[in-house]
Design a protein around this nucleic acid. Sequence first.
DNA 1: CCAAAAAGGCCAGTTACGTCA
DNA 2: AGTGACGTAACTGGCCTTTTT
Length: 354
Amino acid sequence: MELALSLGGDNTPKPILFLEKSSSSSSSLHENKVNKDVGFCMVLGKSCNEVERKKRSKKHQEIRSSSIDPSLQLDLIPFSHGVSYNTCSKLSFPWLSQNLATHEPAGLTNGPALDMTNRMQLVVAEEAEEGAALSSPNSEISNFQMNFPIYRNGKLINTKRDQCERDRDNNRWGNGNNYSCSRISDEELDASARKKLRLTKEQSAFLEESFKEHNTLNPKQKLALAKQLNLRPRQVEVWFQNRRARTKLKQTEVDCEYLKKCCETLTEENKRLHKELQELRALKSSQPFYMQLPATTLTMCPSCERVATTTSVTTTTTTTTPATTTTTTVAASNAVALHNHKLISVMTKLECTN
DNA sequence: CCAAAAAGGCCAGTTACGTCA
DNA sequence: AGTGACGTAACTGGCCTTTTT
């Protein structure tokens, strides 16, 4: 495989062309592995292990590995959002200071005089103004990543996902809150495939407030929020996605609880009705007179939707002696019977159908 | 005008990191 | 100091709609 790399002094993106040779000519294992899908492989450091370690070997992973994987990307960059000036000086790329001066947007050319937060703010602000929702064109790293057309099998790769991947790579280097020189050590490169960056309380609160107003974002709102919070649009987008997911999860839990209670209530009701049914069966066999009552005396109880008499019936239960059985007045019996009339009807019907 | 491709957004599921008990 | 649970930022792949070719 041969790599034709065009580096221009201007800002015009230059394509990287990937010229495939026979795979047998590739001496590195990594090249053998990768060049089947992506004709570009620039191995720096431990890329081989890194790629193999990450077994997410599907399409996007492959693209990612070739385009933005920290071990594969051109780490010849003087500094990016995630690399401090100290690191740059440690790495000492003498040619880069010149690059910097060339590519730095107005306001950033002071270099070391500006702290990184200020630089980020400026960068994000300009990014937002340019409407570059998914890119960070003012950083050195993203200049490289965003503007180089990448070809795979002779075809230009510039899909949405690729864009996101490159944007994600930018994210990996920091969101303005967490910069560390150690991030770019070889060891870290392997380990920092995805560094999680916690949002500050203020950022979270602002996003929360914004979410209350509208739980989805249009591109303008996304950009504005990102600009305001000094975050990348992708981060805002992800936050809203996750927030929606959390809301949905909570709602599902609430629904689940409600359904549980419903289920319990219905189970209780079912038990009660079964019990009632048994009692009524017993009653039916012992006192069949209830069937002779005139229908006009039946009425529906509004609270429990059961059939009952319109007139109040007093039930008198008197236990006289242990030998005597409980005496129930006919009226009371009627009341009980009437109250369950509907249920019995249903039961009878059910029995008939069975 | 139509079809295919590309782009963009969202979602469900998952991973991985930071924090805390 | 080590560890597991938990919250959540970030990622992935798929689906759908809209826009572009």
